[in-house]
Design a protein around this nucleic acid. Sequence first.
DNA 1: GATTTCACGTA
DNA 2: CGTACGTGAAATCC
Length: 551
Amino acid sequence: MSVRGALYAVAVQGDHAACATTDGVQFDGAVADLVRFVEQTETSVAEARWVWWAAAPAATPLVRAGLHLRRSWDLTEAHRLLVGGFEVGIDEIWAVAAGLDLAGRPAPSTGDLFDLRADDDAVVGAGGYLNPSCLQPDWQQAHLPDLARMAVVTADRQGALLSRRAHGMSTATSESGAALLCVELTVHGLPIDRPVLEQLITETAGPRPRDAADADRIRAARDQLVLRHVPGRGATDLRNPAHVRDLLHSLGVRVDDTRAWHLEPYRDLHPVVGALLDWRKAERIATTYGWSWLDRFIGADDRLRGTWTACDGGAGRMTAGAGLHSLPTPLRPAVAAEPGHVLVRADLGQVEPRVLAAVSADPDFAAATAQDDLYATVAQQLQLERPAAKIAVLAAMYGQTSGPAADALQRMERTYPRALRYLRTAAERGEQGQPVMTYGGRLVRSRPAADPAARRAIGRFTRNAVVQGAAAELFKAWALTVRDAVRPWGGRIVLCLHDELLVHAPAAHAGRTAQAVDDALQAAARRWTGGGPVRFVADIKVVQRWSEAKE
DNA sequence: GATTTCACGTA
DNA sequence: CGTACGTGAAATCC
């Protein structure tokens, strides 16, 4: 089966661009003119699907120009479904789609004057491989129409391979859409209330330093809040874990490392412990989320911008730079809707166990998803208290085998044999060095492991990857449905956080937008589960600031 | 100069 | 001996 729609492949390098279909090259010219060509095609060809080797270089100029593209096919994302992994060149994508042996790929030209292959300019060379020079920007710029034509061919070949895999095609279009959404997130950014953020940073990290000497003074003052508790050891470098450990040892705090959760029990032993733990929080904001972070990542339009990727190499979640996925809670009041707008904050409830119920097709576990609080039902079925039931479910998904979960896990085995078998199989495959496949048909490779402990660690990784990865696939399907559903009301997704969505929308359409986000979940879940019995729930609230309505 | 270790933020 | 990611500072490797 081929990829649905009319395929238009776009290749961009610098200021130049080309577009091709199966009928041949349709456009070859400047990026500024490509924007008009794409806009015209998007409106006149209802079934247009945009194909690119990677979303970022091709789609960024289109998104910057304000275009909204409905359908895409991302060769890099589709390739990742086929073979797993992360970093790939277009030569590898081409070879895998063509069914060629990767080992036979010609080596890239060394640029050596005596390398005669540099004279061979054919796009597809001996053995059907792409010219190894295809990874070089200047070669790409000279061959953009060819790259676009090759992209159309590759998309069709990938479609033929993925259509043999359960859910392969829908996951490929979803992951492609996620990659385009990532370009939009990168371009548009997250709205920030700059005065509030500056206030919050000032409270923890101190005022904006005037110069380097001022920065040193503020830093020393912060250190002094800790060091004043240990007279005579004022030379201790708080940023050096070994120094801190020695200091703590001298006070009778016996810890191997100085991580916060090891130190927390000693908070009352000596005032320096609490001061150190408070210092760490302030230091984190000062270094990672301080003034230089603000200057680097928040634009003149008060938008926080990081680089987004649609699918990490491991479990398959979206990732984001500029600290977007680890913004400390104290700073979240600064994430705020623009005037006349609201934020619709939606997060999935207990998504991983619900996903496990769906992907393992365990009927009794699926029945538990009917309730808003899945763990309450599981507790009844296991005849345990709710906290113990929750620990048991999480232990099963994360591969914890020791501690208080052991008895509860046996009950899980008896009550939900199908779900537990699904997890055990994934763990065993990882331990044996084999890849696992997610519900959506994405291959996750297991890393090689030498000793038994490392093999078990890989087993925990693959056990978790089939759940976390499938949850990521459902999340992306939801996010893309939301992207389309909120658009008529002027809404736009501004943040994706694994199981949480933030939509920025005009205040006048707040209610409609919130309803659209909920409807989108039901529609996406129905499609994703194939109409199965598993229920998904979301907590959805209309707020001005991200920090509101957060339990 | 690049890589590893420690630490910690988020889910 | 619960999973993943990104970031920064210091130590370590080459």
